[in-house]
Write a protein that binds this DNA or RNA. Sequence first.
DNA 1: ATAAGTTCTTGCAAAACGCAATAACTATTT
DNA 2: AAATAGTTATTGCGTTTTGCAAGAACTTAT
Lengths: 135, 135
Amino acid sequence: MEKSRSDCPISCALDVFGDKWSLLIIRDIMLRGKVSYSEFLGSEEKIATNILANRLSVLEKENILVKETSPANRSKFVYSLTQKGADLLPIVIEIMDWGAKYNANSPRRELGKKIQQNKSSVIRELSEELKKRVK
Amino acid sequence: MEKSRSDCPISCALDVFGDKWSLLIIRDIMLRGKVSYSEFLGSEEKIATNILANRLSVLEKENILVKETSPANRSKFVYSLTQKGADLLPIVIEIMDWGAKYNANSPRRELGKKIQQNKSSVIRELSEELKKRVK
DNA sequence: ATAAGTTCTTGCAAAACGCAATAACTATTT
DNA sequence: AAATAGTTATTGCGTTTTGCAAGAACTTAT
């Protein structure tokens, strides 16, 4: 059993994804269609390989991600969200909205504007999409 | 200017509060009526004094918190949320909901149950409350 | 003066991070 | 079956951040 700092749900959640990288991996899977180690490595934030390997193993252990061999290429692995992982969607969307609102260098693109106009419908629709590929 | 990893709003947001402690301080102010250094130190998660001092200065520099001398006790400081800080409320509430849903040791109390029943009304009402004491 | 309360700094050891190199594994090519 | 290429890690090492204990700086109360 891992040590948790307290029973506060916020504290427990931060014990899992309270760092600078975990939610970016979640974002890549959730919003950018990325599924593999090399695709995560390619993201603009340039996560280091050892950090990526560590986060993937933590997220898998926490049952947020599932790792499977790719059906197309059997030397490749594919990472998918579980329902627990897909349920992070509202958090990711809220963070995206706040970040876009308060960072001048983060212009809102299609999704960002849609969030601004009707956040709950974005969450509802993306949630349906995610449901189709949840493991 | 601080180095930001990318212009992605999620990445920029995590550059600010993507750690295990910042959102717990925000929680204390937002939901628990805490306002002072010693009150933050007293929280059950037991943040270290140097980490607390560092996080408070970062959050102040990022214009999420404002530090003022207490009107009641002039040897004391009081930390308040800015509008930018108060706008973190939806994120905090969503994290709280997710944490309560997936952590068996986080029983839902009054607020947790209210979030489960009608999340958007909780956010709306608390947002109004916060607006009254925003700096 | 002394004591007590509050906020913050310093020193030091431990853990996490960042970067480069390279290993392990599978599939493909020669 | 040897060599090559692609994917997913692991290792080593130096830097940064964290965690913990001690105590300093400041204000107020006695």
